[in-house]
Design a protein around this nucleic acid. Structure first.
Lengths: 141, 141
DNA sequence: CGGTATCCCACCGGATACTG
DNA sequence: CAGTATCCGGTGGGATACCG
């Protein structure tokens, strides 16, 4: 998800996160690594769809509801770059391109299910906390 | 954020085992809920610090390296609003304010550790994928 | 000490039009 | 069909100054 110029430097930030992180912050940084990868608005949805088998561009466009052509392309490229998706083109007319999640991506998705569990367990509590906080703030005005 | 279950599309082609499973859309949505909460640049770092016991504003400012006063305040407010942090003020002079992670936040952190594991296991593979992708792109220019 | 208030910009993501 | 190219707005987040 970069504007054309932004990615200019072909500098693979392979060991990113080591130098800047020390001690307990290593974990925070590691989590951020993942978040930077799948934190985008559409990444998860695409990974889920592509985890079920090869899927075409327009199929994704339909099944990931609300996504624009641009963001679909951008997100696909990033996921492919990170090795989470494999892109296969068939030189037919009209062209046919399929995307499929890698094993690594499926593992990631499984890991994310743990977060889903957390969210489901605490959804009510969070909603309640928000309501309480907002009510207090309203009174403090 | 939740689109109401408009997932409903009756899928005529059951050819590829891509049967309509409305749960996927819900899962993607649930993951996004969490991401919206802790996807910010500083949330995780703050939660980690506050998980180890009550910590003061300026202590956080020092231990979460690189954070600005503004972002510290904003992130603290959001985390408090979601019930992930408890804020306690002591009416002393000078004022003393302490933040501490709730049990819910610690559970969240534990869940995030699963992601840390994933990131550590695949860090090399991702770096390699990026390098390969960037090299290919350079050639395709 | 523990914040607000402002200004500012990078950049994510939406809409639309064009193309091989 | 599977993308690019462009334009544009909203906002996350940095820097700085001020306040109770």
């Amino acid at each position: 998800m970069h504007e054309p110029d932004a990615e200019a430097g072909p500098k693979p930030d392979a060991d990113r996160g080591r130098a800047a992180c020390s001690g307990d912050h290593v974990r925070a940084c590691t989590v951020r690594e993942v978040l930077d990868r799948v934190g985008g608005k559409w990444s998860i949805g695409i990974i889920i769809e592509a985890s079920r088998g090869p899927i075409r561009f327009t199929e994704l466009e339909r099944s990931v509801e609300g996504i624009s052509r641009r963001m679909l392309t951008l997100t696909l490229r990033n996921l492919e770059r990170d090795g989470l998706l494999v892109r296969t083109t068939y030189p037919t007319v009209p062209p046919r391109v399929e995307y499929v999640a890698t094993e690594m991506a499926r593992e990631l998705y499984d890991s994310l299910l743990v977060l889903t569990g957390w969210a489901e367990r605490h959804r009510q509590a969070i909603a309640a906390a928000r309501e309480a906080y907002d009510r207090r703030s309203a009174g403090t005005d």
